[in-house]
Computed example of a mutant assay.
Amino acid sequence: MELSLTDVIGIFGVGIIVFAYILLQMEKMDPKALTFSVLNSLGAFLIIVSLLYEWNFASFLMEFIWLLISLYGVLKYFKSRSIAAVNDGKED
């Protein structure tokens, strides 16, 4: 079996998501950390790229939802930092 470049991209995306999940379960990563959401976003994006070449609607839907949820986590992280910075400024 020969792997195409898009297969390798998708497999790399799966590896990133699995790596983030392993670190989470080993308590080496905080689920609220930016890194966790970024790794999940990147992994889902890479899987979506591979699915554009080997279409599977169910897998695409799953990864698209995974990507949206992960991007929500990224936005939530930056929003909480911005609120914290505003609150820190009020205490002066």
Rank of each mutant, 00 (worst) to 15 (best):
M1W: 03
M1T: 07
E2R: 06
L3N: 02
L3A: 03
S4A: 11
S4I: 00
S4N: 11
L5T: 12
T6L: 13
D7L: 02
V8Q: 05
I9Y: 02
I9M: 06
G10K: 04
G10Y: 05
I11T: 07
F12H: 02
V14H: 02
V14L: 15
G15V: 06
I16K: 01
I16H: 00
I16F: 05
I17A: 07
F19V: 03
A20P: 06
I22R: 04
I22A: 03
L23K: 14
L24M: 09
L24E: 11
L24F: 10
Q25V: 00
Q25H: 09
M26K: 15
M29F: 01
D30I: 06
D30C: 08
D30S: 15
D30A: 09
D30Y: 08
K32T: 12
A33H: 13
A33V: 01
F36A: 04
F36S: 03
S37Q: 04
V38A: 15
V38M: 13
L39K: 01
L39D: 05
N40E: 04
S41C: 11
S41R: 09
S41G: 11
A44W: 03
F45Y: 10
F45M: 13
L46Q: 05
I47A: 09
I48E: 11
V49F: 09
V49S: 12
L51I: 10
L51K: 10
Y53S: 07
Y53I: 00
W55A: 14
N56G: 06
F57C: 02
F57S: 10
F57T: 14
S59M: 13
F60Q: 07
F60V: 10
F60R: 05
L61A: 14
M62N: 14
E63K: 13
F64R: 00
I65D: 04
W66G: 07
W66Q: 07
W66P: 07
L68G: 15
L68A: 15
I69D: 00
I69L: 15
S70V: 09
L71M: 14
L71G: 03
L71W: 07
Y72Q: 05
G73Q: 06
V74T: 08
V74F: 06
V74N: 08
L75F: 13
L75T: 10
K76S: 13
K76D: 09
K76C: 00
Y77F: 15
Y77A: 06
Y77C: 06
F78C: 02
F78A: 01
F78V: 02
F78Y: 15
K79L: 12
S80M: 07
S80Y: 01
R81I: 00
S82L: 09
S82E: 12
I83N: 12
V86D: 11
D88L: 12
D88N: 13
G89S: 12
K90I: 01
K90V: 00
E91R: 10
E91G: 01
E91D: 12
